[in-house]
Amino acid sequence: MSEKPSLEVRNLKKHFPLHGGLLQRQTGTVRAVDGVSFSIRRGETLGVVGESGCGKSTVGKTVLKLLEPTAGEILLDGVNVTDFSPGQMWSHRRQIQTVFQDPYSSMNPRMRAGDIVGEPLENFGLAHGKERDEQVAALFQRVGLRPENMRKFTHEFSGGQRQRLGIAKALSVNPEVIVADEPVSALDVSVQAQVLNLMIDLQEEYRLAYLFISHDLGVMRHISHRIAVMYLGRVVELTDKRSLFTRPLHPYTEALLSAAPVPDPTKKRAQRIILPGDVASPAKPPSGCHFHTRCPYAIAECKTIDPALLEVAPGHQVACIRRPLGGDLAPLTPTV
């Protein structure tokens, strides 16, 4: 692997100040992303999965530099872009593009579809006029839309077609990395399959690196090569998808997999792990391991020790003090 990762993130943090009181003084901090590290190679999908408020979308926005990171480093194709000003970032924007969850609210309703998809080409001075239109027509075809539809407005497209438009726009400038934040969550199952297939085809064709953010474990297992599980701003487990689904080592991952309903009535699981309580607020995360308040395997030390993400098996990182280096990887026994 001599190739540099397309996207690398080292100890990334994004904190938001909380203001309150008469003078709007800072009263606290939301640690939305609190020390996240990963890298993605060309042609690879890294899935980021977690529940609301775990920081997965903030990771996406921060690597796109739509939010300025509080600490840590972001490397795009080996270039450290962390402290780049918007002007310096400009020339690197082409390399990293994004697809949003709801393409309707992320597209100007008064622009024609062809202009929306072609806008980045003009912005980056890549193509104008007739040449632009030809490239846009080719992009339309590539994502499965008829080029005649270039004259239409976004409201004339269905949800799945709008997501194809979003993908075409992201592809237009020939990026290396695409950050996709819940790109199929708003779609019905039958259309979701179309969009996922398209994304896989495009990835293989252009060797795209995907940072694929989703809460849906089925979608994750389908599209990802490796998966990072986040809980309250931290990555608690990161490994290839097969290991994650067949041998989850973090108690949160295990509970998450056990909680998701399986579309097979013969597989009603005898013992489902039901986690008590709700996810804590990222403004007031629990001490030590953030998950200890809901963890069936927690021991006294979990309240005080902040677990580091350790590679306990080849390519399998987990942040749990009950999973020490060189330790036993067998299932844990509940402590409560």
Partner: peptide
């Protein structure tokens, strides 16, 4: 057949 399954590797 369109659902991505989380219980099997496709």
């Amino acid at each position: 057949r369109a659902i991505p399954r989380l219980d099997v590797d496709a």
